[in-house]
Design a protein around this nucleic acid. Structure first.
Length: 490
RNA sequence: GGCGCCAUCGUCUAGCGGUUAGGACGGCGGGUUUUCAGCCCGUUAGCCGGAGUUCGAGUCUCCGUGGCGCUACCA
């Protein structure tokens, strides 16, 4: 039987990085085993405070962006459509009915108020919380009476009062729960909609899911689902729980730790392969001697679910930033240019759409900046001197390198040496010129370099000066040198 | 409170009874005399505690401690 792995997000808003990491593992396992990757929307919670359908677009965008577009999902459909739980309600009702007939579930007529009160009392006593099973052993005639009156009810799982339920987890090994500690979980809400526990089991079975890969926070509810599989006589999937992602303070990763919305990372200029690489390393290791920076195909080649660790991992923004730089440096030049375009457009440095001139200049500038980019969003700041005209000098740089008669002289000499020629300015000519100016002034070339850099870029940081001059071109360089003479203070 | 999971440098981790406990990020220092970045070199720092098993424990067992998660008609 073919391996089928699903990613089952719920539309509760913008997708979280920890959540997408699960999708990465889901995809990896599916591909590794030559199976299908399926995505299904778990939208059975329609409470307005949590149901945020706007987030669905972002889930789709994130998956596509990462390059892990599902083989079957709500966007493109598939043999198990619909891939949205709200369109599958009849299946859950049918399953609930079957469970009731098999006496593995029962109708519960308790009101939410009563349940809240019960819970409050349990907490006050310091007792374990959980349903007290009032309706479980309800006399048949009483049940029929309430039913005939149309009393709202839920359907609960009748968890065995004794014994244990255990399952085997690919990552965590054998996990066992005393049935006494497992709650009689609500399976069907009083509005007829299922809870996660019922819906996930029914859908995973109906869709032929073979591997359930999800966050470790689902472990405590797994026995409930195992019980449902057993009651319905269905074969269980392979359970694979993966460790959680934490913030720098070791608490669950959340907004206050900085960016956690996946789309934020896209906007900030991280590369898909860098995110993929970083996310998979949060909980998985190829073992000794591994190279950490890997392409998606290298990861796929080395990936082994057995290498998934068990300890929760802190999300290290510094390492992600470093890793992004590594991937940027491995990027094909043309692709890197394309990736930079939207960031430069947002900064107003190039047109939308960019002109041929913009694109040609970008192709020349990117090689100078590739080693200096960590995030694509660094591009506008770094590349501004090549796209903005006129430029303004950085005050500190001006104070240091555009001050005094010597500075003026360096500008004048450089400008003089560069004038006259009609040929394009080359790196060689730029270097020779700067060297010559140094000689003429009886100094090393260093001060010349610094002064000219501030003059033509406005800043003290950036690419090597000779390459910079060549890319800027003779005409622009001359114009900026002359302009800079006005900036020199005494 | 109950239940579950986890525990090696600050962080991500390798280790699967015998190692000088290895790598990566970060930090620090140096080199590349063209800044920044990159690259190269070096350095910093760790087996939570206690019993037990064993000739020998980071590795196995138990207890403790700590962290995290779940404990909803949320997922």
């Amino acid at each position: 039987m073919s391996v089928r792995v699903r990613y089952a997000p719920s539309p509760t808003g913008s997708p979280h990085v920890g959540n997408l990491r699960t999708a990465v593992f889901d995809w990896l396992a599916a591909r590794k085993y030559g199976g299908q990757f399926i995505a299904r929307l778990e939208d059975t919670d329609r409470d307005p405070s949590r149901y945020r359908p706007e987030g669905i677009r972002e889930i789709e965008e994130s998956l596509n962006w990462l390059g892990i577009t599902p083989d079957e999902w709500w966007v493109s459909g598939g043999p198990c459509a619909p891939y949205v739980q709200s369109g599958r309600l009849h299946l859950y009702r049918q399953a609930a009915e079957e469970l009731i007939q098999r006496q593995m579930a029962y109708k519960c007529f308790c009101t939410e108020e009563r349940l809240a009160e019960m819970r409050a009392q349990q907490q006050a006593r310091g007792a374990p919380t959980g349903y007290d099973r009032t309706c479980r052993d309800m006399p048949e005639d009483r049940r029929a009476e309430l039913e005939a009156a149309g009393t709202p009810h839920t359907v609960r799982l009748a968890v065995p009062m004794h014994g244990q339920t255990s399952y085997s987890d690919l990552v965590y090994g054998d996990v066992t729960f005393d049935n006494r500690t497992v709650d009689d979980q609500v399976l069907l809400k009083s509005n007829g909609w299922p809870t996660y526990h019922l819906a996930v089991v029914v859908d995973d079975h109906e869709m032929g899911i073979t591997h359930v890969i999800r966050g470790e926070d689902w472990m405590p509810s797994t026995p409930k689902q195992v019980l449902i599989y057993q009651a319905l006589g269905w074969e269980q999937p392979v359970w694979v729980h993966i460790p959680l992602t934490l913030g720098p303070d070791r608490k669950k990763l959340s907004k206050r730790h900085g960016s956690t919305q996946f789309t934020d990372f896209i906007r900030q200029g991280y590369l898909p392969e860098a995110m993929f690489n970083f996310l998979v390393l949060l909980g998985w290791s190829a073992g000794e001697g591994m190279q950490e920076v890997m392409s998606v195909s290298e990861i796929l080649e080395k990936f082994d679910p057995g290498g998934i660790g068990r300890n929760p991992a802190v999300f290290d923004y510094d390492k992600l930033r470093w890793m992004n730089g590594e991937h940027i440096r491995r990027c094909e030049p043309q692709r890197l240019c394309d990736l930079c375009v939207p960031f430069l457009q947002d900064a107003g440095l190039i047109g939308d759409p960019p002109s041929q001139d913009d694109l040609e200049r970008l192709r020349n500038v990117v090689p100078l900046m590739v080693e200096r980019l960590h995030l694509l969003s660094d591009a506008p700041g770094l590349m501004a001197p090549f796209f903005r005209d006129p430029i303004e000098p950085d005050p500190a740089g001006q104070r240091k390198w555009l001050t005094g008669a010597d500075a003026r002289r360096r500008l004048e000499l450089t400008s003089d040496l560069l004038s006259g020629a009609e040929t394009p300015l080359t790196e060689q000519e730029a270097e020779a010129t700067v060297n010559r100016v140094g000689e003429m002034m009886g100094t090393s070339r260093a001060p010349v370099i610094h002064t000219i850099r501030v003059a033509v870029t406005g800043t003290t940081v950036g690419a090597g000066l000779f390459e910079t001059l060549a890319v800027l071109g003779r005409e622009t360089v001359q114009r900026r040198l002359r302009r800079a003479m006005e900036w020199v203070v005494d």
